[in-house]
């Protein structure tokens, strides 16, 4: 493996990281929004979101990527590989985030909500001031777990021509006939990225436990 190959892998790692960050950053608010819409139990919308979320959760990321890249243009939405990859990962993680937030909302202590209502907090204020600060803390573990899954799901978008870590490693291995070094390097890169996420989670959880005294899952 030459120095150029290392640079190629690092460039691919930045693609992996960029795609993951974009997907996670877009997926979180969308997932939260969907969970809130579902918790409002609006007649038709509720079933529609439930069906959509189930569909996206069931679809492998590869399938979803092919759908976004090849089928959406039929509906007039033509996307370059990178934006299509971001859309794919966003859709996928939003669906899972929705379920995580929904579980958090369902488990939220009723007495706290009641106290907030009794003191005149309107629904939006109540959500912003009482629910959200606790919801994200309680959901932190499952959310980080989902983030690592997104990161590890990025090789799936190679199918629409995005060169991320695994794809780059495969190419290098094919050119040099020595697959071990590039795939070893790829594994190290994934491990490093995920370690950063998990470290961040541990740090945040320790702070939360120290300050507020409630355990987070």
């Amino acid at each position: 493996m030459t120095f150029d190959d290392v640079l190629t892998l690092l460039a691919a790692a930045s693609i992996t990281l960029g795609l993951s960050v974009a997907g996670i950053a877009l997926g979180l608010p969308i997932g939260l929004g969907l969970a809130l819409l579902r918790s409002a139990r609006l007649p038709v919308l509720d079933q529609a979101i439930a069906a959509l979320v189930s569909l996206v959760r069931a679809a492998p990321i590869v399938t979803l990527a092919l759908f976004v890249f090849f089928v959406l243009p039929e509906a007039g939405l033509e996307l370059a590989p990178i934006p299509a990859a971001v859309v794919t990962l966003t859709l996928n993680t939003a669906a899972f985030d929705c379920e995580i937030f929904r579980a958090g909302l369902a488990a939220f202590p009723r007495d706290q909500l009641e106290a907030a209502s009794a003191y005149g907090l309107r629904p939006a204020t109540r959500f912003r001031r009482i629910v959200l600060p606790q919801l994200w803390r309680a959901s932190l573990g499952p959310l980080v777990s989902e983030m690592t899954i997104v990161l590890k799901g990025t090789p799936a978008v190679a199918v629409i021509g995005v060169v991320e870590i695994t794809r780059a490693a495969g190419r290098i291995g094919a050119q040099t006939y020595e697959p071990l070094p590039p795939f070893l390097a790829a594994t190290v890169l994934y491990t490093a990225l995920i370690a950063v996420l998990v470290r961040g989670q541990r740090f945040a959880e320790a702070r939360i436990a120290r300050r507020y005294g409630y355990a987070v899952s």
Partner: peptide
């Protein structure tokens, strides 16, 4: 909105405190 406004005139103390832990 109306209900929230009406509730500002009455406060409640709950059996299980219902403090906001954060």
């Amino acid at each position: 909105r109306e209900l929230a406004a009406a509730r500002t005139r009455v406060s409640m103390v709950f059996q299980h405190f219902a403090l906001w832990p954060h």
